[in-house]
C-alpha cells in the first residue's frame, strides 16, 4: 500500500482511487485493512477471482467511476503504469487497455508462453485482433464494461471476456508494462489447474461466444 500510495490521488487529468477486495481471505488482509483504515470490500467467504472482481465492479459502477484498473496485490503489477494506461484509454477512447508484457519484448518459449500464444491465436481467429498478452492480469476497463461486469455474472476478468468484448465492438488497446515476480501469495493457476484453465478459456473463446448474451 505504501508502494501504491504515491500513485494515488490527482495525476494530470486523472484522480486515482483504490479499492482493496478481500475475497474471504484468511490471512491478515482484513486486519491490515481495518487497522490502517484502507478502503476495502470484505467478502464473507472465498468466492473466486471473477466474483471478487465483480464485487469491485459493482462498487465502481454505483459510485460512478469512469475507469477501473484490475491490479494484483501480490506485487506483480507496477503502479507506475497506472497513469500511462489511463492516458491511453482516454486518448484512444478505448474500452479495455491491457497492460502488456509483450508489446515490444519477445516471448520466451515456456509452457506458460505456449498457453499465452494459444489464447492469442484463439482471440485472433474469433475476434480478428492480435492481442500480444491476453493473460495479463493488469487491465483497465471503461465505463461501458464496468456496467457489464456489474450486471452480468458471465463477465470474468479473463481473456475470454476480452475476446467477447472485441466481438461486441469494444476497442481494446495494449500498453507496454513490465511485471515483477510476485512477492507474496501463490498464483491461483497451479500447474495442474492451468491445463483446465486453458481448456476452459479455449472453449469459452471458440464456442460460447456465440451463445453469450451481450
Amino acid at each position: 500500500m505504501e508502494w501504491l500510495s504515491p500513485y494515488l490521488g490527482e495525476h494530470e487529468e486523472f484522480v486515482f482511487d483504490y479499492l482493496v477486495v478481500n475475497d474471504g481471505s484468511f490471512d491478515n488482509t482484513r486486519k491490515i485493512c481495518r487497522d490502517n483504515g484502507y478502503r476495502f470490500l470484505d467478502l464473507p467467504i472465498n468466492t473466486g477471482l471473477t466474483s471478487g472482481f465483480r464485487a469491485g465492479m459493482k462498487y465502481a459502477y454505483s459510485h460512478g467511476y469512469d475507469y477501473v484498473i484490475q491490479f494484483d496485490a501480490d506485487g506483480q503489477h507496477d503502479p507506475q503504469y497506472l497513469l500511462p494506461m489511463a492516458q491511453s484509454a482516454l486518448a484512444e477512447q478505448a474500452d479495455i487497455v491491457i497492460g502488456s508484457r509483450f508489446v515490444n519484448a519477445k516471448k520466451k518459449l515456456t509452457m506458460r508462453m505456449i498457453g499465452s500464444n494459444f489464447l492469442a491465436a484463439m482471440i485472433n481467429v474469433t475476434a480478428h485482433q492480435k492481442i500480444a498478452d491476453p493473460t495479463s492480469g493488469m487491465r483497465l476497463y471503461g465505463r461501458k464494461l464496468i456496467e457489464r461486469f456489474a450486471k452480468d455474472d458471465e463477465y470474468s476478468p479473463e481473456p475470454d471476456t476480452v475476446a467477447f468484448a472485441i466481438r461486441q465492438g469494444a476497442k481494446v488497446v495494449e500498453v507496454p508494462v513490465t511485471m515483477a515476480e510476485r512477492f507474496g501469495g501463490t498464483s491461483y493457476l497451479s500447474a495442474a489447474k492451468s491445463a483446465m484453465y486453458m481448456m476452459r478459456m479455449g472453449l469459452s473463446i471458440l464456442f460460447f461466444q456465440w451463445v453469450r448474451k451481450a
Partner: peptide, 10 residues
C-alpha cells in the same frame, strides 16, 4: 452464493 457475498461486502 457469489452474488450474496458480493452484496454482503458492499
Amino acid at each position: 452464493v457469489n452474488e450474496l457475498s458480493q452484496e454482503v461486502a458492499l
